[in-house]
Amino acid sequence: MAKSHELHRSDFVKSVVAVLGTIIGGFIAIPGIGYLISPSLKFEASEAWIPLGPLENYPDGTPTLFNFTRTKINGWEKTVNSYGVYVVNHGGNQVTVFSNMCTHLSCRVNWQEDGQIYHCPCHDGKFSPTGEVTGGPPPKPLNVYETKIEDGVLSIHFVEG
């Protein structure tokens, strides 16, 4: 009788140790996981109309590169990200603005006047003047921005996130 009582006590003590240990572990582990992954779950949507200057600055038909920057807070630092767009003025207030980011792995594409293509230097991706993929690995055509023209000034709708 005494023996089995002794055994019960020992089992009880062991399970209390296990339960309390698990509680402590859980109280550290669960916030810990949240702590580690929370920056990856947070994205700040960003949206703005970016002025690209008077439309007349852009020559008809030729894609022209325009660079602009956006400031973002990443953790404890302000990051100034640089973006490039190719503006194609079709004349008569018709304009197409392509992102210069390759749809494959986000390298920056260059307009090649002699080949009449946007060429990506990383994996030899090629896009036609209308942004369609004509060669290489890119899965999608170049991204096109929504545009508006107010008082002759061209703006694009920049959306991120």
Partner: peptide, 20 residues
Amino acid sequence: FPDIIFKDMLVSFGIFVLLV
């Protein structure tokens, strides 16, 4: 184990609760 560890665990757990 388990007698001493049991006491230790109770005290540590108390400290942990206090800490949190």
